[in-house]
């Protein structure tokens, strides 16, 4: 039972309270709160305009919320200076964009893309940087001989895997993902899901993943938050929310998709 005890007594890695973002009279997200524990994957689902992307960008520090608190490892992230915030973004946090072009430097080789975060935190040994980059390309199933190719020469799935390697190379503890499998072929999606699942388990990552794809959260997320019109309408265990949805909107959402 020790494992159970550990899981239950551990402190949350990320604690969000009353997060609100307005755009004038329009609500981006409203009163969102949750705790994310080490090693947990939280899925956020909802249709376009439900506020899930606004929430993610507030969490990841791309936008400043109007109200609420975000505690990471107990520290009040919104009180951070920009320098501290950016240090977090290239150290303990990572962000995987839906479009790999937004998360990669397209004019820089694959090795340089993976090495950038290392160099940003002070790595100054070329051979060591290259070795680490090669190792990470292998982990995301990119052949070592592609290390000097630019991402523009890669397929969409490879670009997305490269973006993941680039983000995880410095061993972040919390990863934000915005529709990481969006825009990919189904077979490529499966491969990426497999990869992400393995990395999450092996590295003990905590993940907040935003998607509209219920099949993706079914396979990756431990817990699920359903958003509508900027508010959280339901949250709980992923399979509970999908198998026994309580809120009218969630019932509609679940019944509207093909069997997952």
């Amino acid at each position: 039972m020790t494992l159970m005890q550990n899981a239950i007594t551990a402190a949350p890695l990320l604690s969000v309270q009353g997060l609100t973002k307005r755009y004038g009279a329009r609500i981006g997200c409203m009163g969102v709160g949750f705790d994310l524990y080490p090693g947990e994957v939280l899925g956020i689902v909802g249709e376009s305009g439900s506020g899930k992307s606004t929430l993610l960008s507030c969490l990841a520090g791309h936008q400043r919320p109007d109200e609420g608190r975000i505690l990471f490892d107990g520290a009040d992230v919104l009180a951070f200076s920009e320098a501290e915030r950016r240090r977090l973004l290239r150290g303990d946090w990572a962000y995987v964009h839906q479009n790999p072009r937004d998360g990669l430097r397209m004019g820089v080789s694959a090795g340089g893309n993976v090495g950038e975060r290392l160099m940003a935190v002070g790595a100054r040994n070329y051979a060591a940087i290259r070795e680490t980059a090669t190792d990470w390309l292998g982990r995301v199933e990119i052949a070592a001989d592609r290390i000097d190719d630019r991402p523009s020469a890669f397929s969409g799935g490879m670009q997305q895997r490269l973006q993941i390697a680039r983000n995880l190379v410095t061993g972040p503890r919390l990863v934000f993902m915005d529709e990481p499998t969006g825009g990919l072929d189904v077979s490529v999606q499966a491969r990426l899901l497999d990869l992400l699942g393995g990395l999450v388990r092996d590295l003990g990552l905590s993940v907040v993943i935003v998607t509209h794809d219920l099949a993706v959260v079914r396979l990756l997320a431990d817990r699920l938050m359903v958003m509508k019109s900027g508010r959280v309408v339901e949250c709980g265990l992923t399979d509970q929310v999908l198998d026994d949805p309580q809120h009218a909107y969630t019932q509609l959402l679940v019944s509207s998709v093909l069997q997952v």
Binding site: L3, M4, A7, I8, Y37, R191, D194, L219, R223, L237
Partner: peptide
């Protein structure tokens, strides 16, 4: 809490369902 149930499922409570639900390709 959800995380207590997750911990329970990991260590204490096993489940054999009729359907295999796994990440493709594994």
């Amino acid at each position: 809490e959800p995380r207590q149930i997750l911990a329970l499922r990991r260590a204490v409570l096993g489940h054999v369902s009729q359907f295999l639900r796994v990440v493709p390709r594994v």
